[in-house]
Design a binder for these strands. Structure first.
Lengths: 340, 340
DNA sequence: ATGTTCATTGAAACCGGTTACATGTCAATT
DNA sequence: AATTGACATGTAACCGGTTTCAATGAACAT
């Protein structure tokens, strides 16, 4: 009768169980589990069979402890209830998954406070790198990452002046392009709808980009509204009650544009005959509206894939993270008409 | 000169650094970090200050290794690019966050294969419990959880016949209710649009629920289509080309209903005068369409919160997971009219 | 003064892996 | 036959915490 061994075997099989089962040392088992090449083929086979039999899976905590790697990447986003972020997350998850990494997700609601709390939590959970949205973050947060030397990347933005790598698109430039596009079609008064400036530096960048277009003939009126279908609809009412009616509405989100569609419909106005409408995002349904929505295609999923890939490469090979400017271009459909 | 100590201190401070700094033992530091009550107030204070000074954060892997807890919950969902899932995830994340847990997310694209792979990955990452969507999962997956005694819960469904706890709503019943509601307003021929049956047992349940309503006067025609705005639009065309035109379209997703709106508009038809339309989900924008969409309110965020809370309670106190049937009711708006 | 109790603290054994280094074996080379 | 080297495997020191148990000492009762 062995002593002390009477305690029930703990449910998950441990490496030493496999060692005992095969009569090998735990070192060899470990080598097999990690695909080390210095294991004879038949030993490897024997081990793998034993693993199968014992339903063995290496303990992740133990592995993380000795290797100092958790294979976990964190993303903190302001909201997930916006298609663009959802696609972005899907892109990240997919890219991470193919290489065995996992995604831990936190939602900050655009609050620095919550973002910091989430970051601490995820750090204390073993996240090896962080994917953040936008470039505006509390100094405290950034300091924390700096002190701990945790790799971070900013996404949804592209800014050559930042030291921290930005992987995304140039919001300012794109907004300016959108305005110029409308101007080129003869629109001289354009209403611009956007979400809250407070919580999103990307929105601010877009607005500032739009303002840079000072073709003398173009007048812009800005409407800050809630970032939702409802917000777009509310803003339309404002516009329709204004003294001078613009000929086009540029929305810095397709979601707003959808609200605009309904708002105009409610007012009995036709797109684009009575009002041209342009969006920003190119969500899945943008081509399905009636009329199909002219918008700017943001490569959300590609962006997720790009940042995830860069981070994994960095973690594995040490190549530094680098700025990446993704293609985003105007998708011309029929919600914008030319003004003679 | 101490020997062996010349190696650079590793960036993250370890518990023994704090012990050295304070002249206490690591046991005491550990006690402070875990809020054990048997530490004198002034010692605690001294330790906390030292932690601050050294920027100390306990190593999560080490902690997980000794306590056998990772504080990580996994969710596997078919897609995140559907608002309902996004809200669901947001609900989970929020609930987990308030109690220090983290969410690891995987996306299965509705494929058993991918789901299994993801589950293995997340298990090998230390996830302590799994949140799954729907009740249809491969035997292999379920067996794996069973063998390892990993707690799991099915969501978006409610089924009293399943042993595994279901936290959600009764899709079949709700669909039947929707049909009865339309019938009560005089609709005798109703087109029902739904997504692929293959990949979603919830869709199947809804369809079967609708079929149970055999009021003699009501005829149902089912249209399986892609689950997207586009899909709704395509299905509308089918309906309009049919021999007998229904008076109402019931969509098992608001997204489809949106496509229907555009499809009808394209055909020059008015909602609800020429066609009544009803959705399923009550997405944020449903009240903002023109006309506002009659639909069924699914408590996605609440569901996320409910399942997360149950799981945390279970992990901490051992109370068993239990079935939970959440309220979901018809939201009457003006996209459905009464037929005389 | 002496014994008892309680509150603090420390020593050391884990937790389950990884990996540097040592060891042993066998075939190829001289 | 002796030497060498490549390969396969084992030994044991770590990784950084948690927790049991014992030790210490102060407060209190006798």
């Amino acid at each position: 009768m062995e002593l002390g061994v009477s305690k029930m075997r703990k449910p998950p099989g441990r490496i030493r169980d496999v060692a005992k089962e095969t009569g090998l040392s735990i070192a060899t088992i470990s080598r097999v589990m990690n695909g080390s090449k210095s294991v004879s083929p038949k030993t490897r086979k024997r081990v793998l069979e034993a693993c199968e039999r014992l339903d063995y899976l290496p303990n992740p905590a133990a592995r993380a402890l000795s290797t100092n790697k958790s294979n976990t990447i964190a993303a903190i986003i302001p909201t997930i209830e916006h298609s663009v972020f959802a696609k972005f997350i899907a892109g990240i998850e997919q890219a991470l998954g193919t290489r065995g990494y996992s995604l831990v997700l936190a939602i900050s609601n655009g609050e620095d406070e919550e973002e910091l709390k989430a970051a601490r939590k995820l750090l204390g959970m073993g996240a090896e790198a962080f994917i953040l949205s936008g470039a505006a973050h509390s100094k405290e947060l950034l300091d924390m990452f700096l002190r701990r030397q945790v790799p971070i990347a900013f996404t949804s933005v592209w800014d050559p002046n930042l030291k921290i790598p930005t992987i995304g698109y140039d919001n300012s430039k794109l907004a300016a392009e959108a305005v110029r596009y409308l101007a080129s079609l003869g629109h001289q008064r354009i209403a611009v709808f956007h979400g809250p400036l407070k919580t999103s530096d990307r929105t601010l960048a877009r607005r500032q980009g739009a303002e840079t277009v000072n073709t003398p003939l173009v007048e812009l009126e800005f409407h800050e509204t809630e970032l939702s279908v409802s917000g777009g609809r509310v803003a339309v009412r404002e516009v329709l009650h204004g003294k001078v009616r613009p000929t086009a509405i540029l929305c810095f989100s397709d979601v707003l544009a959808l609200g605009v569609y309904f708002g105009l419909r409610e007012a009995g106005l036709e797109v684009p005959d009575d009002m041209s409408v342009m969006g920003f995002d190119n969500l899945d349904w943008a081509k399905e509206t009636h009329p199909p929505l002219t918008t700017i295609n943001l490569p959300a999923a590609e962006m997720g894939k790009a940042v995830a890939t860069q981070i994994m490469d960095h973690l594995e090979t040490g190549v530094p993270l680098h700025r990446e400017n993704l293609d985003a271009e105007i998708v011309r459909r029929s919600s914008v008409k030319e003004i003679k």
